Measured scan of single mutants.
Amino acid sequence: NPITQSQFVPLGEVLCCAISDMNTAQIVVTQESLLERLMKHYPGIAIPSEDILYTTLGTLIKERKIYHTGEGYFIVTP
């Protein structure tokens, strides 16, 4: 039996792509809307728990890849 190979993409990278897409579409990015986006637009991805999502978003903020305001999460533009 051949083994199907899937590509590994770090969660942080997927979140940045999803946040960027949602920002472009002017969709408010909350943790809930982000999870919905992942389920709908990234089939096959293991949906992270709320704790993992929260921690990963926190890491992306520390790395200055995203920022959070009262209006949601946004990509940091250079």
Score class of each variant (00 low, 15 high):
residue 1 N to G: 05
residue 51 D to H: 06
residue 42 Y to I: 04
residue 57 L to A: 01
residue 37 R to V: 06
residue 9 V to Y: 12
residue 22 M to S: 01
residue 74 F to I: 04
residue 1 N to E: 04
residue 1 N to C: 10
residue 50 E to P: 15
residue 31 Q to F: 10
residue 76 V to F: 15
residue 15 L to H: 00
residue 66 I to W: 02
residue 37 R to A: 08
residue 35 L to M: 13
residue 70 G to C: 12
residue 22 M to K: 01
residue 47 I to A: 07
residue 72 G to S: 09
residue 15 L to P: 00
residue 18 A to S: 05
residue 57 L to K: 00
residue 75 I to P: 05
residue 2 P to T: 13
residue 60 L to S: 02
residue 32 E to D: 08
residue 35 L to K: 14
residue 48 P to L: 07
residue 21 D to V: 03
residue 2 P to V: 03
residue 16 C to R: 07
residue 65 K to H: 09
residue 77 T to Q: 07
residue 44 G to H: 07
residue 17 C to S: 15
residue 49 S to Y: 04
residue 40 K to N: 11
residue 22 M to D: 00
residue 75 I to V: 12
residue 19 I to A: 00
residue 27 I to G: 02
residue 50 E to D: 08
residue 49 S to I: 04
residue 68 H to L: 10
residue 34 L to V: 03
residue 31 Q to A: 10
residue 54 Y to K: 15
residue 75 I to D: 04
residue 35 L to C: 06
residue 41 H to S: 12
residue 59 T to L: 12
residue 62 K to T: 08
residue 12 G to N: 12
residue 26 Q to T: 04
residue 32 E to V: 07
residue 18 A to D: 02
residue 3 I to S: 14
residue 23 N to A: 01
residue 39 M to P: 06
residue 38 L to G: 01
residue 17 C to V: 13
residue 41 H to A: 09
residue 22 M to I: 02
residue 45 I to W: 06
residue 49 S to W: 06
residue 78 P to T: 04
residue 9 V to D: 15
residue 40 K to L: 09
residue 38 L to Q: 01
residue 42 Y to L: 05
residue 73 Y to N: 03
residue 8 F to D: 11
residue 34 L to K: 01
residue 43 P to N: 08
residue 45 I to L: 12
residue 12 G to I: 12
residue 65 K to C: 03
residue 8 F to I: 10
residue 30 T to A: 00
residue 13 E to P: 06
residue 30 T to H: 01
residue 71 E to T: 07
residue 2 P to S: 15
residue 5 Q to I: 08
residue 22 M to G: 01
residue 15 L to I: 15
residue 70 G to I: 06
residue 7 Q to L: 10
residue 38 L to W: 01
residue 63 E to Q: 12
residue 4 T to P: 10
residue 52 I to G: 08
residue 2 P to Y: 15
residue 64 R to A: 05
residue 61 I to H: 02
residue 40 K to E: 12
residue 21 D to M: 05
residue 6 S to Q: 08
residue 17 C to H: 10
residue 56 T to R: 03
residue 65 K to V: 06
residue 61 I to Q: 08
residue 25 A to V: 03
residue 31 Q to S: 10
residue 70 G to S: 09
residue 26 Q to K: 13
residue 24 T to P: 00
residue 72 G to F: 01
residue 67 Y to M: 07
residue 52 I to Y: 09
residue 43 P to Y: 08
residue 8 F to Y: 07
residue 35 L to G: 07
residue 27 I to T: 06
residue 75 I to W: 06
residue 9 V to T: 14
residue 58 G to E: 09
residue 1 N to S: 15
residue 52 I to T: 15
residue 64 R to H: 13
residue 1 N to K: 05
residue 40 K to V: 11
residue 18 A to R: 02
residue 35 L to N: 07
residue 21 D to G: 03
residue 51 D to R: 09
residue 73 Y to D: 03
residue 22 M to N: 00
residue 10 P to Q: 10
residue 28 V to W: 03
residue 2 P to K: 12
residue 27 I to S: 04
residue 42 Y to D: 09
residue 11 L to T: 03
residue 29 V to G: 01
residue 31 Q to W: 05
residue 46 A to D: 11
residue 47 I to Y: 05
residue 2 P to M: 15
residue 43 P to A: 05
residue 42 Y to Q: 05
residue 66 I to P: 00
residue 60 L to M: 03
residue 17 C to P: 01
residue 56 T to K: 05
residue 10 P to C: 12
residue 61 I to K: 06
residue 66 I to S: 01
residue 72 G to A: 07
residue 31 Q to T: 13
residue 3 I to H: 08
residue 50 E to Q: 12
residue 17 C to R: 15
residue 65 K to E: 02
residue 47 I to L: 12
residue 16 C to A: 06
residue 57 L to H: 00
residue 8 F to K: 07
residue 23 N to Y: 02
residue 61 I to P: 00
residue 23 N to G: 02
residue 2 P to N: 15
residue 5 Q to G: 08
residue 62 K to Q: 15
residue 49 S to V: 03
residue 19 I to T: 01
residue 67 Y to S: 07
residue 4 T to K: 14
residue 16 C to K: 12
residue 73 Y to L: 04
residue 7 Q to F: 14
residue 46 A to P: 15
residue 15 L to E: 01
residue 53 L to Y: 06
residue 53 L to C: 04
residue 72 G to T: 03
residue 57 L to C: 01
